[in-house]
Design a protein around this nucleic acid. Structure first.
Length: 270
DNA sequence: CTAAGGACCTGTCGGC
DNA sequence: TGCCGACAGGTCCTTA
């Protein structure tokens, strides 16, 4: 479900409800997510006050004095703020109950998400190897060109690699490559530095615009405030195979790259 | 080291 | 209506 804009929308939606709240109880009904929810997590966080709700890549970090809970939404995860006592559904795996009388509920049908613990002053291995934030100054054409140097894999696969840059998933990889006019199948190492500069800029642009629109709602994604995202109306290629290109009218093609659906315009993208 | 494929899990949809 | 395969917003891990 979530790429960076959806995770940021979720973070921003839940943060006002969590900031400064004391954690009354952590209820884990299903610990078997991508990795097991640590058995001692409830004991670590209960009674503690939430100091901040942050984000690194697609991880939401709920910070308390002794460390942070790391929340990843995987493919199908979402979070909602609900009143205490709301009856849980089949896929409502975790509730973070607050003194305010509300709770943060994690729902994740496919269970590719994760809830982990990072002690204060330490960095979890999953975060340690992440690339820069796409909206930061550290991510630019020079950096991207260095990553692409000598690489034969498809540029689309490379920009979706979280060790290169975080937050670019299948929707926005397709969109950014369309906007940059680059064929998603092109070998990363065979693209000019100037074009990679354009690509870095379009990645920033498409992500920033999607965040401003509250993300992309495909099925039932809603931010923590319960509102859907409105970016779907602005998608040029994702989910549009067989339809005409917005720019030139050619029929958009679909191929599979790294087992992911890839849609592009053979006329506009080279 | 790189690149490619499998793995994890459930729900939904299209075709027969 | 029922069954079966393909596919879905992620990404780590294994294999070659």
């Amino acid at each position: 479900m979530p790429e960076l804009p959806e995770v940021e929308t979720s973070r921003a939606g839940i943060a006002p409800h969590l900031d400064g709240q004391r954690i009354r109880r952590l209820v884990v009904r299903q610990p078997r997510l991508r990795w097991p929810v640590p058995a001692e997590l409830a004991a670590r966080v209960e009674g503690e006050r939430i100091l901040a709700v942050e984000r690194r890549g697609k991880y939401i970090l709920i910070r308390i004095a002794t460390g942070s809970m790391l929340l990843h939404l995987g493919m199908s995860g979402s979070v909602r703020i609900l009143p205490l006592g709301a009856a849980p559904g089949k896929h409502d795996h975790v509730d973070l109950e607050l003194d305010s009388g509300k709770m943060l509920r994690l729902t994740d049908p496919r269970r590719f998400g994760a809830l982990l613990w990072q002690a204060q002053g330490e960095q979890h291995a999953l975060l340690a190897s992440l690339g820069p934030e796409p909206l930061s100054d550290a991510f630019d054409g020079d950096y991207l060109a260095r990553c692409c140097q000598g690489r034969r894999s498809a540029i689309k696969s490379l920009i979706m690699d979280s060790h290169v840059v975080v937050g670019v998933g299948n929707i926005y990889a397709n969109e950014a490559l369309f906007l940059a006019g680059i064929d998603p199948r092109r070998a990363a190492g065979r693209i000019s530095k100037a074009r990679l500069g354009t690509l870095a800029a379009t990645i920033k642009d498409v992500l920033a615009r999607a965040i401003a629109q509250g993300g992309t709602t495909l099925r039932d994604f809603v931010g923590g405030d319960g509102k859907p995202g409105y970016f779907k109306q602005q998608l040029h290629v994702y989910g549009r195979a067989g339809e005409p290109c917005d720019s030139c009218g050619s029929i958009l093609k679909e191929v599979r790259l790294g087992q992911r659906s890839t849609v592009y315009c053979a006329a506009c993208q080279r």
